[in-house]
Design a binder for these strands. Sequence first.
DNA 1: CGGTGTTGGTTGGTTGACCACCTAAGCACA
DNA 2: TGTGCTTAGGTGGTCAACCAACCAACACCG
Lengths: 206, 206
Amino acid sequence: MSPAADTRDRLIDAALELFVYQGYAATGLAQVARKAQVLPGSLYYFFPTKEDLLLATLERRKQTLYEGVLRPIWESTNDPIERVFGLLAGYRQMLELTEFKHGCPIGNLVLELAETHPRARGLLVQNFDGWLDAVEQCFASAQDRLPPGASPRQLAVFVLTTMEGAVMLARAYRNFEAYDAAVVHLREYVERLLVESAARQSSRRA
Amino acid sequence: MSPAADTRDRLIDAALELFVYQGYAATGLAQVARKAQVLPGSLYYFFPTKEDLLLATLERRKQTLYEGVLRPIWESTNDPIERVFGLLAGYRQMLELTEFKHGCPIGNLVLELAETHPRARGLLVQNFDGWLDAVEQCFASAQDRLPPGASPRQLAVFVLTTMEGAVMLARAYRNFEAYDAAVVHLREYVERLLVESAARQSSRRA
DNA sequence: CGGTGTTGGTTGGTTGACCACCTAAGCACA
DNA sequence: TGTGCTTAGGTGGTCAACCAACCAACACCG
């Protein structure tokens, strides 16, 4: 890796963390540079404007979704339904490790920037889409165990809304009560869909 | 109302909207004063610091929860379960009316301020608590129609996480697909709890 | 009644810090 | 020698915070 690519990466890493931790507007470029061990001027060399830096972080986030988020869980879990809940457990673990400092990296920025930064919104949506695609695939490959009317995509959306809301409440309360309650109910719901479908299939066979 | 209380109120009203619309950090005090038709100096008379203004808006939000949010729905709907979904419909309507500009007033600020403003976090939690109390009461007064193990509080938490997540996705995508999908699934889940309980009761009677 | 001090609220402008943004000189490596 | 990158410094602008002068309403007292 060239030295330039290295500092560029360090800048994105630093910005990624600061934007998620304290918001976009509240983060100064000088602070990003300091955290990345780079002089403020260099920052301008790679990212002409602050928004360019923001877009680069979102692009990075999108590209590391599989490597950083999905793969560790996909490798430890095979059952598609359990993979979904493994994902939820992963976010829980992140909250735990960072003592609720980091929530969902996308969610925070959506609420802050959706109205004011249209280009960022586009990338945020792409990030959500990537996540939804992955979860949709889980449900799709378990579709034979689900009721016939169940839409994998809509189930994925439900999982994402639950997760985003749960992360938000966990950060607000600084505990896992709400997060765990939400996941328990989501599991109850999915469980019911599974047994319903199983009952239907066995009755058809009979 | 004294003229002073009036300008104070106007300031809180203006700040309330701006903080929700464009975030806390991104909102300048001069902008708040302009919107409230007040000179910047007066702002300092009522609120020594920007954070004091923030806390006042959260206090106000807490006190207007019933009047502004719950009452209109409570009055048009009697069934406790339908009241819960009426609440969700109300937030949907707000998104529609404001063209996705306003999300949940509390949720936005939670993600922005939870880590950096501990006093604000306390008030944000109080706001969530008030909302949760109301929804919990709904489920509690329908408890005879729910399975015996169902906890009204935990159900309320599930509703809140769903709502917050749904609002977030609606704002990101600028459409209601995700919002509606989430609400549909939540309804499916509650519906299943109701019929389950009904079946159990009729089988006991038999 | 009327003059006088006090209080609650307003005005407009200042201050110092910080911000994103910009530049031009310097560096190392090819 | 040239190119890619880094460095230090600087500019204009905006921010929260602050202030001193001001004003109207009121209370108190001669």
